[in-house]
Design a protein around this nucleic acid. Sequence first.
DNA 1: GAGCACTGC
Length: 767
Amino acid sequence: MATKRSIVEGDSGSQDLKRVKMGKGGDAKDDKFNPYLAHHYEDDNSNGNGNGFSSPLDKLERHKTTAAQASKCEDSDLNPWTGQPHSQRYFGILKTRRDLPVQKQRQEFLDMYHSTQILVFVGETGSGKTTQIPQYVLYDELPHLNGKLIACTQPRRVAAMSVAQRVADELDVKLGEEVGYSIRFENKTGPKTMLKYMTDGQLLRESMHDHDMSRYGCIILDEAHERTLATDILMALLKQIAARRKDLKIIVMSATLDAQKFQTYFYNAPLLAVPGRTYPVEIFYTPEPERDYVEAAVRTVLQIHATEPEGDILLFLTGEEEIEDACRRISLEVDDMIRESDAGPMKVYPLYGTLPPAQQQRIFDKAPEALRKGGRPGRKCIVSTNIAETSLTIDGIVYVVDPGFSKQKIYNPRSRVESLLVSPISKASAQQRAGRAGRTRPGKCFRLYTEKAFKKELIEQTYPEILRSNLANTVLELKKLGVEDLVHFDLMDPPAPETMMRALEELNYLACLDDDGELTKMGSLASEFPLDPALAVMLISSPEFYCSNEILSITSLLSVPQIWVRPNNARKRADEMKMQFAHSDGDHLTLLNAYHAFKGAEQNGQDVKQWCHEHFLSFRHLSSADNVRAQLKRIMETHDIELMSTSFQDKDYYTNIRRALVSGFFMQVAMRESSNSKVYKTVKDDQLVMIHPSTVVQSPYDWVVYNEFVLTTKQYVRTVTNIRPEWLLEIAPIYYDVDTFEKGEIKSALTRITEKIRRRQAMKGGR
DNA sequence: GAGCACTGC
């Protein structure tokens, strides 16, 4: 009986059929073989297992499988999912899979999975959880029976892509068929896909149009301990959805540390822990606090090189400049050591996010050989930002040097400023860093702070992103996701009420939320764009200013890292090149000029890479702006937002663009304190700022709109464009209601302009 | 006259 039922159901997959089978509410438990529909089943071959072959899967019953049954399926000559013979390679991989720590607990996992809707799974690095758990689920969910996918989310794109490839290999299927991935700009899934790796942000986007996540039978949130904004929102959403959809299973996977917190949050969900596979790491602390951590770090690296046995070194610092400086100092000192005391050679590599990929790749080069036969062995030393803490794994690291700092995003809701600040890391980070020394053999970690500081001063966990961000975007997303009551939305760490209020206020000014906090048409449209609300509103409003094509380009350019390249040894030439694109009224217009030149070079059939190099522009970032532009353009077309330009000959070509900038960024405006002063004051927030020296604006007006606020040695506004204050009153009259301003220069200036406009209108009327 | 932690849609 079981066999017969499964074979036929295995042929399911057509939309028609699904509708009939699901019945009311789409509950999979209603799924029964219906003999009257048998003719449907036979014809349909679109689903993965619809090949009509006899598969060992046919003996399995959903949510009642055992580890032994699954193993038997995996051991069979034919691939149970495709009916094709297993490759030789498959059996090789299978053997290594069976050695993973998680394999021993497969039955325990299944027992727990069967007993609960939500499960917390704790697996340390090297446990195999990311690749194996989704496959265990696959053999129990049997997605070919109900047509529902298994999703596994990752915080990063590369992880989603590479793990999907690995699992496709493990299952002996082609990537994009039974196993696929979905990330921004790339959806590698197909009609046969049963297991889908994706970024957490991608699942969140999808759920905006499918509030019940009805395509999925099981959702696995991996790396939940990283607490990305998207993961935090997904967790809260899934808690709600779980109550509505009893057929949906949820697995939250995390590294050890915060497991209990997850368990409590999910109504004391059962917890399964699997040990990892790492080597012990010996921890050393400094006896006294270090005054200059860069200096101490360089010294420690050199000491390791002089006294410790073979093995590579990983040093954590906070940013590009610090890293490049440390690399230089270490290299110089090592040269001395080689000359003076016959030390081994050492290659020093910097590593940070904005480094071009080719240079990032160099960290995987082999350590240098000894200088002569029998000489002291060589090693490599990688000086990295936090990127090596989570995103990149380098094998062969035996020594970690951890000064205990990283740059972290901080948000101050009062001044509405997001900034980067060098701050002490958390205990969890320190542990993660130390762990990097024990991936291939026992290692050592040198912490450049005292043991007392570690125990008493470091916080347990880095604050989750949701507590460190401007939430305007998040609040808009939540509204779109159908979350009515934000105050009672059950987030694991609710943000400060003030941050929420600020976000609501900002969205209200942008006309995305009405005065009752309800999503407006503008808000609904804005949430369709993967952009910050101000950018989305600017883009949506741009047809009113007859320049949506140009604003689309500017928006894309503002959504990627800086396109200007400025190498240390060619700053002057780079600046001169930039001036070729300069538009005296603003950096936004300069960006546009550079982009147009880039597209022009492309159209002329020039070698664009070379062209970018000659013009000190980043080919990588311009290309990615192009990608973003294509995506945004598609969304605009879907929603009938007209694409148009003012004629370039028209004297208003640039004025229209500048006015359109105001439609989104009227809250990011600064007024010059007094004529000829270099100091500006931001509107309503009253922050004193200077225009960032990278600007091309030569004769700044009294009023500028700015793209970002940067806090370094001074407070700067970066990427600025000259505007006329009359535009503010005209385009954003509610925000620029003079009565709402505190007494001061800005209020007086706005009052004068209001009166001027009134007089002018009166004269017109009087004529 | 300065700098860019890292992700993600």
